Simulated scan of single mutants.
Amino acid sequence: MEWRKYAEQMAVLARHLLAQDSLQATLDEIAASAVKLIEGCDAAGILAVRKGRAVTLAACGDMVYESDRLQGELDEGPCFDLARHKDGERVYRIEDLNQPQPAWERFAAEARKLGIGSMTGVLLYTDEDDFGALNLYARRPGAMGKDIETAGWLLASHAAVALDSARTIDQLEHAMESRHSIGEAMGILMERHQLSEDDAFDVLRRISQQHNIKLRDVAQRVRTGRTDPA
């Protein structure tokens, strides 16, 4: 590994990730960048565990989806265990899947059928949050040497910061969209039923509470004509 060149690539990647326009775009770019920048990596994905289920957040390469699906069905596997913090590990490396894997015997047997020869995974996390595991796949056994742990960790560190920023931006944009939607719905009610601004908001809030529907969803229904409080 040429570390100076890799460090320069990481600096470029950090700026590129922060320039993405959505959380999903950031996730997708992280997976694609791992394949592009990490030597020996043929596919990459980001796996999260939600309510005990394996969820593929991003994938670059078909074997990622198959591996994630397999681990979810078997309830075992290195990516699955890493993403759900089993044993408190933050990184794993399987240099050769042809060698015995006592912790994941069933997964290893099926993974070989998918053409996976070696794997490495790194948690994506900041001091306050975690976003799942970045998993790197190689078809060739022995492709995941010791250096790949450091390379993956460096990429994952930059990626976690970018994800934290992207999530904040997404939340702000979503909040702005919600306010805009609610404002439009209030305007419709005010014009249609001759209501004041406060009364129009009270109508939306009452429907939200009575039917246990989020306020922005009530507003969307009013805007599309699917709900008329009158």
Rank of each mutant, 00 (worst) to 15 (best):
E110V: 09
L163G: 03
H193K: 11
A175E: 09
L215I: 09
I213H: 03
R53M: 11
N135H: 04
A54I: 00
N212G: 06
C41E: 03
R112P: 10
A160K: 02
E197W: 14
A83M: 01
R93W: 05
C79K: 03
S181Q: 14
E173I: 13
H16L: 14
T224N: 14
D199H: 15
A48R: 03
A162S: 09
C41V: 11
R192E: 01
E149G: 08
F131V: 04
I38Q: 01
D68G: 02
F80T: 04
K146W: 12
R93M: 08
E8Y: 11
S33F: 02
R223S: 10
K146F: 11
F80E: 02
D199Y: 12
F131G: 00
L124W: 03
K146D: 13
Q209Y: 11
S181G: 12
Q210E: 12
R140D: 12
V91S: 11
A111T: 07
L97I: 03
R206N: 11
L97E: 00
V122C: 06
R206E: 13
E173N: 10
E76D: 08
G183C: 09
V55S: 06
F201P: 00
R112A: 12
G187V: 06
A219R: 02
L23K: 02
I188V: 13
K113E: 13
A108P: 02
E110G: 05
D28Q: 07
K36D: 06
T224I: 12
R223I: 12
V122T: 04
A25Q: 05
R15K: 14
Q71F: 06
D164T: 09
Q210A: 13
E29C: 07
L37R: 10
P229T: 13
A59C: 05
A7D: 05
R206G: 07
R93F: 04
G225E: 06
G183I: 07
H193L: 12
R216K: 11
R206P: 02
H174R: 15
L70Y: 01
V122P: 01
D28K: 02
E197A: 15
T126G: 04
G183P: 01
Y6Q: 12
G187M: 07
A133M: 08
Y137K: 05
